[in-house]
Amino acid sequence: MKTSLQDRIVSVIFGVSAVLAVFTGFGNMPLYKRYYIADVPGLGWSGDFFTNLHVHYIAGSLLLAAAVYGGVRFWFERKEGTRLTRSGAVRAAVLILALVSGVFMALRNLPGIDYPFYAHAGLNFLHMSVAVVFMVLGIGCVAARCRWLQKQSQ
């Protein structure tokens, strides 16, 4: 896939929003005040649950936009022989699960939308677990410099 300035900007947005989404995701648990993270200068906001959630929404939205951008790009580039690497395919699947479950959680926050207990608790658990898997894979892939895509020789 030929990269341009636009692609590079999107990949920076993707990286930054992924880090922010994971950070605020952990911050949705009552951990940051307890473990002094919110005492770090500049991170005070992370100890406020609503602010933390709002930043999570923004990070999630940017991540979703970047993922759709990447997905659509990939869809068209497939014709020219671009394929997901194995690690790329796994990361994409996990990211899709995290994003979709996150969107369902945001919908649940709207008035008039309630899920049955098992769906509600299950969704929380799913979102949290895939986000942790995504984080671990992300760190591993950055360290090992894995690529998302490869060009198949035709």
């Binding site: 999630g60 939205s61 979703l64 936009a65 759709v68 951008y69 659509v72």
Partner: peptide, 12 residues
């Protein structure tokens, strides 16, 4: 969240 996928699509 609603605008995000549209923005991504338009960008692509």
């Amino acid at each position: 969240l609603a605008i995000a996928p549209i923005a991504g699509l338009l960008g692509a």
